[in-house]
Every structure is written in structure tokens, then in C-alpha cells.
Simulated assay, not measured.
Amino acid sequence: MRRVKVSDFIHCQSSDNGLVTVLSFRDEKRKNQLCWAAIDELADALQAAREQGSRVVILVSDLSPHWFEHAWLEDLIAGVEGRECTGVGDGWFRALAELSHEAVVSIAAINGDASGGGAELAWACDFRVTERQARFAQIEVNVGLTTGIGGCSRLSRLIGISAATEMVLTGAAFDAVRLMELGGVNRLVKKGEALSCARQLARQLALKPPGALQGLKRVLRRAENLPLEQAMAFEQETFQQVAVSESALAAMKDCQQQYDADQSVAEVHSY
């Protein structure tokens, strides 16, 4: 299926010397339901941010009261029926791969409702900073579908099988407070504060040693899928690879000098 020419959906803004990229989504016509052209463009933007050296990427909406909503059903129907779509649609899988890529930390700055495939993008991110008014729903059952990119598998790992079962089988929305209580949200903030909180978190992350961040993200992702013994072995393997790097040696020596100067662990690491 050829691609239909459409306007841009994603606005890209970099900061912190290019280490942080904010990707803002707006599709007023579809109320932020993700057409194939939009998700393809999002995947392209995520890839470009990584290749240009960003260490942290933030996803946010520029259309209240929506964050990223479910797949635009007209494209889904057209694809099933063999008709023309707005885009290729492989962006769903490429976007997930980019959000999971070890070279970049992904933050969902959730400032509106997230549903279906949009909610699944949130589950794929490393962090979720969520405003209190936001709601989350896996609505697939209500339109005769199943989840396809993490609405069962990732969600059940985040909030537990009982809560995930309730969400996906009933199609009911969970509010941000309940998601926080279940462990599906990292930060819960007031309306209008998601992006600023996400930026603050991003700046902290961008200053961390990149080799350590990449190694830890690699270990965390593998730990989701491996039995404990294999996950432990992979964790130790990664540790040994990172520990001999020049950046790790420099960081260790700097910390040890501060310890030797009678500073406590809490003082050195600011907690």
C-alpha cells in the first residue's frame, strides 16, 4: 500500500546540548487517535533522535485532553480490506523497538487520556510521568479486538495479572491515581506539570554515564524474559563488560576520592 501524503504530526525539540529530545504529538482531526502516517512519523522521529545522539526522549501530547489514543480504526479496517491507508503502519513495531533501545531512555509525559495502542506506547516507555486527570484504557475488547503490542503482556508485568485482566477484559478505564497505586506510574503530578517533571528527570538521566545507563537498561529488559538464574548470569556478564570501561574507572576513582575525603555515600550521591 502506497503512502498518502499528509501533514506532519510530530513536533521535535531538543535541549541540554542535544542530549534530550521532546516529541510532541498533535492530530486535532482524529483527536490524537494514531493513524498509520502518524505512527510511522513517530517511529522515524524516535530513530532520528537516537541517531543524532539523544540519550533521553520524551513523548508528550500537544492536544488536550488527549495523550496518545488508540489506533485510528479507519486505517486498521482499510488494511484488513486491502484498501489504501495513510501510511505503512510498520511504525507501531519500529516505535516499540526504539522505545526499548538500550541507547536511549524513554519517558512518557502523560498529560491526557491514553487508550489502546497509545496506552501500549506508554507501557513500552522506561518511565511514566502522569498528570492526575489522565485515564488509561485498553479498549480493544469493545471493538472486537485483542491487544497487539503489549496491552496484556507488558501491562500485566507492570500492574499485576489481576488488575491487567480487569482492564483488558472489561475495557474500563483506570485513573492515574489507581495506576500509581498499582505500580504502573513512576511520578504522579498536577495538571500541566507532566512535561516539566519529565524534563527535570531527563536532565538527571542525561548526565549519568551512558555506558552504565545502557548496560542497566539491557539488564532490565532481559530480566523481564529470562528465568532468574539466566538473568543473574546476564547481569554479571554485563557488569564485567561495563566495569572495565574508561568511563566506569573514572567514575569509580572520583567517588572513592570523595569517600576518602570523609564524605558519606549519601552525601556523594545526593540522597
Rank of each mutant, 00 (worst) to 15 (best):
L46V: 02
S100C: 14
D40W: 07
T86V: 06
R94N: 12
A103M: 11
N32T: 00
I110M: 14
R55Q: 13
D113I: 03
G82D: 04
R50A: 08
N32W: 03
D90G: 09
A95N: 05
V57S: 09
R83K: 13
F93Q: 14
E84L: 15
A45C: 09
E98D: 08
I107Y: 03
E84N: 05
L46H: 01
A109F: 12
A97V: 03
G91M: 06
I110A: 13
D113T: 14
S54P: 01
I39S: 06
E102Q: 13
L59Y: 01
A97Q: 11
G18Q: 10
E74A: 05
S64I: 00
G116F: 11
W67A: 14
R50C: 05
A37F: 02
V105M: 13
R94K: 15
H70E: 15
E74K: 10
I77T: 01
A48Q: 06
W36Y: 12
E28N: 00
E84W: 13
G79W: 12
R30V: 00
A108F: 12
L63P: 01
R83L: 08
K29L: 04
A78M: 00
R26M: 07
L99I: 14
A71I: 12
R30G: 01
A71K: 02
N111W: 11
S24W: 05
P65D: 05
E28P: 02
R55G: 05
S61I: 06
A109P: 08
A95F: 05
L73D: 08
V57P: 09
R94S: 08
G79D: 12
V88D: 15
G112A: 04
T86G: 10
F25L: 10
W36M: 12
G117E: 06
H66E: 08
A38F: 01
L19T: 03
G91Y: 15
S106N: 15
D44K: 07
S61P: 04
H101M: 03
D62P: 00
H101L: 02
C85Y: 08
I39V: 10
L73P: 01
V60W: 00
L42V: 07
A108I: 07
V104C: 12
W36D: 11
A78E: 11
A97D: 13
K31L: 07
V22L: 10
V88N: 12
L42W: 08
W72E: 15
E84M: 11
I39R: 04
G79L: 08
N17E: 14
D44A: 09
E102A: 14
H101A: 13
D40Y: 06
A114S: 15
A103S: 15
G116T: 10
L19D: 00
E51I: 05
A114V: 10
L42Q: 07
V88A: 11
